[in-house]
Computed example of a mutant assay.
Amino acid sequence: MPDAPVILADEPGSFPHGVLSARHPALIRAVRDAFPYGPDRRHALEALLTSATEGVIEPLGTEDDVRWAQWGAREYLGRSWFEVPFLWSESYFYRHLLQAVGYFGPGPWQGIDPFRPFKLAELDSVETDEELAALDRLAGEPADARARALLHGSLWGNRADLGFRLSAPDASTAASGLVADDSDVLWSLLPCDTVCLVADNAGRELIPDLLLLDHLLTRRRVRRALLHVKAYPYYISDATTADVVDAVRRLTAAQGEAAAAGERLWTALAEGRLEVRAHPFSCAPLPYADMPDDLRAQFAEADLTILKGDLNYRRLVGDRLHPPTTPFADTTAYFPGPVAALRTLKSDVIVGLTAATEESLVAAEGRRWRTSGTHALIQVGP
């Protein structure tokens, strides 16, 4: 709700403070070491490292300053990274990182995704092989059981988030549990004509997202699927169009059911039954409540929109310290149509819990349950 406090990163020991003070410096070093950048790019990365931890927010020095001025930079330039809204400072950090590595050019590094080595390593991992092999075992299950398994695969795939692993490397093997489960409501909205899935991460998370869409298309639960990805590399794992192509190719290069799904997805893309979209607002530091009219119209095309992951959840309900019992429908009433969230909890934002659930989580884990990645939710509104 609009009167809930906006989340900042100025409290030492808090999750947002840890992201800015520890995760972002680790990411800069990882990117620096992943490419043979020349002295100019390496100097720019070192300057960003100093700025992000000790300095103040500075202009980009490009024509994109106009867009970011509209997105809040006029108010935040010259201030500490820790003293402005956490969603904004995270987003602006990644835009500065792309600037430092020369992504927007001109120059030889133009268009080179600085996170691509990490994404490809995930696709080529033993864990991915094991997950794809499991599809063969799933093929013999009843249709409803396969659907539930694929939904939960998409939900929990978020634990593969590369950025999260920088600060919690063992989270992917931790115990897990749903804190809210509206899956029955979600299934009740199907079949329908058009479903929209707003992707979060590439790699091992994007594959189960694609498998879920393949299932819906193949089983005629939907006629058409829209897959929204980022317009350019954003947070370390976030999926772009190139990552979609890499993921489908990874499937087609596998064996058995995975390869068959990859071939179907390739055909669906070629025929337009699965359409990839990448709106510039996908990389904005703003909540979806502020989406432009043309994006609102795109979401309105869908009978159901599914938003994946933690960042999309923060943008959907607002990156604020809502009371956890705030109804999910209240925070998403602005959305142009039915909307579902599939999210592994990795930040402080949470709504839609019962009082009993909140009390039991706090009693067992304090505040850690909000950010540990060991809990998840399926919520549907309005």
Rank of each mutant, 00 (worst) to 15 (best):
M1I: 05
D3R: 11
V6Y: 07
I7Q: 07
F15R: 07
L20M: 06
A22P: 00
R23S: 04
L27I: 13
I28L: 14
I28E: 04
V31A: 08
F35W: 14
P36D: 06
Y37V: 01
A47T: 05
E54V: 05
V56P: 00
I57G: 00
T62L: 11
D65S: 15
S80H: 03
W81P: 02
W81R: 01
F82M: 04
E83W: 03
E90R: 12
S91E: 02
Y92T: 01
R95E: 08
R95G: 01
H96K: 14
V101D: 13
Y103E: 10
Y103T: 07
G105D: 03
W109K: 09
I112D: 10
D113C: 14
F115H: 09
F118H: 12
A121P: 01
L123Y: 11
E127T: 09
D136N: 14
R137V: 14
R137W: 14
G140E: 14
E141P: 08
D144N: 15
D144R: 15
D144Y: 13
L155F: 09
L155P: 11
W156K: 03
R165I: 07
L166I: 13
S167C: 11
S167I: 15
A168Q: 13
A171T: 07
T173W: 07
S176F: 13
G177R: 08
L178S: 04
W187N: 07
V195S: 10
L197D: 04
L197M: 11
A202Y: 01
A202Q: 03
R204W: 02
L206T: 06
L216D: 06
L216Q: 10
L217V: 03
A225D: 02
Y234E: 14
D238K: 05
V244H: 10
Q255A: 14
G262M: 04
E263A: 05
L265Q: 02
L269G: 03
L269Q: 08
A278L: 05
S282C: 12
Y288Q: 02
P292N: 09
P292M: 06
R296H: 08
R296N: 04
Q298R: 13
A302K: 10
L304F: 00
I306Q: 02
L311Q: 04
N312W: 01
Y313C: 04
L316A: 02
T326S: 09
P327C: 09
P338H: 06
A340G: 03
L342W: 14
D348A: 13
L353P: 09
T354I: 03
A355I: 06
A355E: 15
A355W: 09
E358D: 12
L361K: 08
A364I: 00
E365L: 12
R370V: 00
S372W: 12
G373N: 07
V380A: 08
